[in-house]
Amino acid sequence: MTKILVVDDAEFLRVRLTKMLLTDGYEVFQAENGVKAVGTYKEIHPDVVLMDVTMPEMDGLTALKEIVGFDAKARVIMLTALGQESVVLEAVKSGARDFIVKPFEHERVMKAITKLLT
């Protein structure tokens, strides 16, 4: 089954995303900060990572760099907020494959994922 790793410090966001992704038939894993995300990535090799930017312990940008450093083919989609333009550019430079702006619709997430998986 396609494995998706959802990384966000807000439990509500994880719950919401997990719900969406389960409906789409994915296997979903969660992590609530960058450190855990990197650990989980190395362990389960998810097909796609949905990564929040602002998180405690380790932020999404650092986690992205670590993940891409570990696996150059990692498909990481950043979950960004308005006003994080500079972060987005840096994320893309660092190997993020897409970014989704919060608040997002189910369809936007689904498309971003299928796009990367094809």
Partner: peptide, 14 residues
């Protein structure tokens, strides 16, 4: 042991 970090849906990782 590490697996605890990876939490499938239904368990809160926090």
């Amino acid at each position: 042991n590490e697996r605890r970090a990876a939490t499938p849906f239904g368990r809160r990782s926090a």
